[in-house]
Design a protein around this nucleic acid. Structure first.
Length: 721
RNA sequence: GGGCGCAUAGCUCAGUUGGCUAGAGCGCUGGCUUUACAUGCCAGAUGUCGGGGGUUCGAGUCCCUCUGUGCCCA
């Protein structure tokens, strides 16, 4: 059923609206804290306006241009494809050895080709200029088998002497090297493949029409069979075809090899044809910090390896229209050199329905009238403007001036060559700066076998089910434990660990809050007096410092790791150690020191964990605060005078006691008749400081300290009841 | 073929300018009904730090080389 572009866009908008709701629900569930009033869709009105405005500016400054040129073309999608969307795939092929008779009758020259079906498109033979085997032949002519056209033998450095027979045929066009040769050697055009992927119905000039009729209208692979059959029947083909594997260019979403057809397309200059611009864009990359740093190499390699400008027009329906019309001459042919541009205040426009200034609708597609550009801009041509779209560039509200250049672009490393590079290119052209100061590249989520997840493999896991099963915090915990830029294997085991962590946080909070609230009017430094408590807070200070440094270096995994290690130590050792004192075993002042320290640590830990496990921390925080944990300030070190290492021998002693009970298969509650700690004199003060807590935690009747070079404990358990 | 990574316990990984006996979690084994938590607690076993060479008083860490593996590009 035919449908107009506006109607099609309308249907797309409806679908987008539905999908947006699904995604918003997902992101809200994930706990992403963004301003939901600030959303946009890649194709909504503002995005179209910004995209068209930026493109028109590029056109006016000469950074965008249209050109009739050989273009990589997907015959199924019926559209041109940009360099960034191509990939090489190994495909079986076969060398066919074919002799070309010299035009002067002085013998023949053998060539090897994987595409004999393109003999009818042959425009030259080429060998390396230093190749002595062919030097005598340069400038002479040969006759193409079957089709009879005469072509000249040329020299070019890209010809590889060790490939095939060392001399290749140039066709318009078999591959991208053909395009280079064609351009640099100023060869004629003898194209035979059409946009539908079939061989054109009529033979090109100089090509024998009868021979060509046998392959006209066929797909290349069908034509190849026909040509090989002919070559064999006529005894031309030398030997059997020799199979080989070689890389063939595909559209990354396509199923059939790309062909090269000539068409008019829009390009944006990206340095692919200009070394100065290329150097400028590489320099933009050095203006930002890369996380991790080695990702910058990928950017540099990509920019330095570009071999053409950025093809931005696409022959598709859904997208931002190229905002251009063309005047038609008396014969109804477009005058491409003088495109008609809309004024910016009319944007966004659709040239298929809107009429350029000075024309009327009935002049559309009429001689001396106008025609709209039928193409759309590639999705990356709009995505490359996300800073401008999100920041309301030239939308009159002043937001852009406040947010641009941005602090950070977070994205996957697989789209450095597309999203990241194209964004830098547009920002360079439009604003003359790098669009942000930090690029944070995340790795991929791999399946448990460390394979990349993809729809085609069917190994994709969607998050919503995992949120239901393990809780959002658990999924976030797992994902935050993958270091920046490093691929992370999907692991439900890690999610279980995250679930345990969230649960532990809730429980320890509940426990600490069962104790009466200490008098908060007394400064922390005056209330926390016990060296054991001060030591714990000193350790916490180190953790806060390290976690903060981790975040500042974009290493959230490190921040999580340090916080988590401290937290489990805190629960299993510190809390167990001071529990008795908190229960008032040694009087209110001693208890108060522990209670203040416990709450201080809890408050910091909840804030340190808040970015990773936002829901459990918010819940736990709400039990004893009226604010949101996500709105309060980041924890700062307490800067008290504690010695972070003082508590270590105390915990070590407790571990010895626990081990003794475990080895005796006794409960940890079992009574200890006597504990003798042998320790170097330097550790005595620490053990003495922990004496009371140790007695409580270990149910120890008598604790004696003696001097000795090696730390050891002698434990006598009380006889069981 | 070029570029960039990775290789540490059965598994997933940490190990920041080289520095005591290489760590964690999971898993495994054994024990503990302990008044925040059995979604818990205590303890235990497991390593040629991929191979080789070099620098150094000292190398998982730095250099060279080889092997394996992954990504990007041609």
């Amino acid at each position: 059923m035919p449908i107009s572009r506006p109607n099609f866009l309308e249907l797309c908008d409806e679908l987008v609206e539905q999908d947006e709701k699904v995604f918003e629900a997902l992101y809200r569930r994930l706990g992403v804290s963004v301003d939901w009033k600030q959303h946009y869709a890649t194709i909504d009105e503002r995005s179209r306006r910004v995209s068209q405005r930026a493109f028109l500016r590029n056109v006016q400054r000469g950074e965008a241009y249209s050109q009739e040129a050989p273009t990589l073309w997907d015959i199924d999608f019926r559209t041109a494809v940009a360099q960034a969307e191509m990939e090489d795939r190994e495909r079986p092929a076969a060398y066919h050895k074919i002799p070309f008779q010299k035009a002067d009758g002085s013998g023949s020259i053998d060539i090897d080709t994987t595409r004999p079906e393109l003999l009818a498109a042959c425009v030259s033979l080429v060998a390396h200029p230093d190749d002595e085997r062919f030097q005598p032949h340069f400038g002479t002519k040969v006759i193409v088998p079957l089709y009879g056209q005469e072509v000249e033998i040329r020299a070019h450095e890209l010809a590889q002497p060790d490939k095939g027979t060392g001399i290749a045929m140039i066709c318009t066009f078999g591959d991208t090297t053909d395009v280079t040769w064609w351009r640099e050697l100023n060869l004629e055009m003898r194209a035979i493949i059409g946009r539908d992927g079939r061989l054109l119905p009529d033979a090109q000039h100089d090509v024998d029409p009868e021979a060509y009729a046998l392959i006209a209208g066929k797909y290349p692979n069908q034509a190849q069979r026909a040509v090989v059959e002919q070559l064999t029947e006529q005894g031309i083909l030398i030997g059997e075809p020799r199979p080989l594997q070689h890389p063939v260019k595909f559209y990354e979403r396509g199923d059939r090899p790309l062909e090269i057809v000539t068409s008019r397309q829009w390009y944006i200059r990206n340095g692919g044809r200009n070394a100065d611009l290329r150097a400028d864009l590489v320099a933009r990359g050095t203006e930002m910090h890369w996380h991790p740093g080695h990702m910058q190499h990928r950017y540099d390699n990509w920019v330095e390896g570009l071999n053409g400008d950025w093809l931005v027009s696409r022959q598709r329906f859904f997208g931002v229209p190229v905002p251009i019309w063309y005047r038609l001459d008396a014969a109804g042919e477009p005058i491409y050199d003088e495109p008609l541009l809309p004024s910016e205040d009319l944007l966004p426009i659709d040239p298929s329905t809107d009429v350029p200034n000075g024309f009327t609708a009935d002049q559309r597609d009429q001689p001396n009238g106008f025609a709209g550009d039928p193409d759309i801009l590639d999705t990356w041509a709009t995505s490359s403007l996300t800073p401008q779209i999100a920041g309301h560039w030239e939308e009159g509200d002043g937001l852009f001036e406040r947010v641009f250049p941005y602090d950070m672009r977070p994205q996957g490393h697989d789209i450095i060559r597309t999203w990241l590079f194209s964004t830098i290119t547009r920002s360079h052209h439009e604003h003359g700066v790098a669009p942000w100061s930090h690029a944070a590249l995340s790795g991929w989520i791999l399946d448990p076998d460390r394979k990349k997840m993809s729809k085609s493999k069917g190994n994709v896991v969607t998050p919503m089910d995992l949120f239901d099963q393990y809780g959002t915090d658990a999924v976030r915990y797992w994902s935050a434990s993958g270091r920046p830029g490093v691929d992370t294997a999907y692991s439900e085991d890690q999610m279980k660990v995250g679930r345990k962590l969230a649960n532990k946080l809730l429980n320890v909070t509940k426990f600490v809050l069962t104790f009466p609230e200490a008098d908060a009017s007394i400064p922390l430094a005056d209330a926390v007096t016990d060296p054991v408590d001060l030591s714990m807070l000193a350790k916490l200070d180190e953790v806060i410092t390290e976690a903060t440094a981790g975040f500042e270096a974009f290493d959230y995994a490190r921040a999580l790791d340090r916080t988590e290690s401290f937290f489990w130590w805190f629960c299993d050792n510190y809390v167990e150690l001071v529990k008795g004192r908190a229960y008032n075993s040694r009087g209110p002042e001693a208890a108060n020191s522990a209670l203040r320290a416990l709450r201080e640590a809890l408050g910091s830990v909840q804030r340190l964990f808040a970015p990773m496990i936002p829901f459990a921390t918010e819940e736990a925080w709400s039990w004893w605060n009226t604010t949101s944990v996500h709105a309060v300030s980041w924890p700062a070190p307490s800067a008290l005078t504690g010695d972070a290492t003082l508590i270590d021998p105390v915990i070590d002693t407790l571990a010895h006691v626990r081990r003794a009970k475990t080895e005796a298969k006794q409960s940890q509650k079992a009574a200890v008749e006597s504990l003798v700690v042998t320790a170097p004199a330097a550790l005595h003060a620490a053990v003495i400081a922990g004496d009371g807590d140790l007695r409580d935690a270990g149910s120890i009747a008598t604790l004696t300290i003696v001097e000795g070079a090696e730390f050891s404990c002698t434990i006598t358990l009380a006889p069981p009841d």
